[in-house]
């Protein structure tokens, strides 16, 4: 696959958003808010950064990815389907009893999913295990993860963060999707997790702060992470929950709610307009 850059990445990410929102709408359940906030990072990973082979999803030297905030599966599934791991039509059967796309990522049945996740706080530990295995086996693949800024209230995240530093896992890079919102409201009100930069630095990680919707910044951060030796990298990306759908943006209420037909029509029109705009300019 030819790597995508700039506007091509942005357009792909909006297509991912449209697929994710449509799938959640059809399923009448799912998590659009966080899927939209991490869609750019996911798109950058799978269409630029990561070395994967959709024809051989279990290729042992592939780069690994763990969606620690597993409820954002709609975005991950859209990216995997568009990258060629399974048919794009399957996305319309999200959460359906007769399909393989469960509510949260399931590595047993979904090609391209490297770890089953969904119970918050657990994914990053498994990513540490993958990165540690690479070091142990002398392999050069890298491991990526995306965690939520609400998710990092889980104590296990900090156990994982500590251990990644202990083993100098410079082959591990974790995005923290800092959209500032979680189910019960703002992270500030529910459980303040900031200052995340100081926390990760204190735990001996390399920290990069970026705008999570700016592809130049995302790719630069990934390149910096690759060059960083001796410690893992945390990319703290400021994002907008619900990014790209006006009425979902910055609304905690759209964390885990599906748009109805009328709402989906508006969302679709807005996202298609974005895609068109990126095609024309």
């Amino acid at each position: 696959m030819e790597k995508l850059y700039g506007k091509d990445l942005a357009r792909k990410a909006y297509k991912v958003r449209l697929s994710a929102v449509e799938a959640v709408h059809r399923a009448a359940s799912g998590h659009p808010g966080g899927s939209l906030s991490c869609a750019d990072a996911l798109t950058a990973l799978y269409f630029n950064e990561m070395n994967v082979d959709p024809a051989n999803p279990k290729w042992e030297d592939r780069d690994r990815f763990v969606l620690s905030k597993g409820h954002c599966a709609p975005a991950l599934y859209a990216v995997l389907a568009m990258r060629g791991f399974f048919p794009v039509e399957d996305l319309q059967k999200l959460r359906s009893i007769d399909a393989h796309l469960s509510g949260h990522p399931d590595m047993k049945y979904i090609p391209g999913v490297d770890m089953s996740t969904g119970s918050l706080g657990q994914g990053l530990s498994t990513a540490v295990g993958m990165a540690l295995s690479a070091k142990h086996q002398g392999k050069s693949y890298r491991t990526y993860a995306i965690c939520g800024d609400g998710e990092v209230a889980e104590g296990q995240i900090w156990e994982a963060v500590m251990s990644a530093a202990k083993w100098n896992l410079d082959n591990l890079c974790a995005f923290i999707d800092v959209n500032g919102l979680q189910i019960d409201g703002t992270t500030k009100d529910v459980m303040p997790t900031e200052p995340l930069d100081k926390k990760f630095e204190a735990f001996n990680w390399h920290v990069i702060k970026i705008d999570g919707h700016d592809f130049a910044q995302i790719l630069d951060a990934l390149a910096e992470a690759r060059k960083t030796k001796g410690k893992p990298t945390a990319i703290l990306m400021t994002t907008v929950k619900g990014k790209g759908v006006s009425f979902m943006e910055n609304q905690a209420g759209w964390h885990g709610k599906a748009p109805n037909a009328e709402e989906f029509a508006i969302a679709k029109a807005e996202l298609e307009a974005k895609i068109k705009e990126l095609e024309e300019n």
Binding site: E60, D114, S125, T126, S133, Q156, S163
Partner: peptide, 22 residues
């Protein structure tokens, strides 16, 4: 691999390692 007094993380690390053939 001594994971320290952090059993939950140890289980996750083991899960990740097992996906890499260990």
């Amino acid at each position: 691999f001594d994971c320290g007094i952090a059993e939950n993380n140890m289980m996750g690390i083991a899960a990740g390692m097992s996906t890499c053939g260990l």
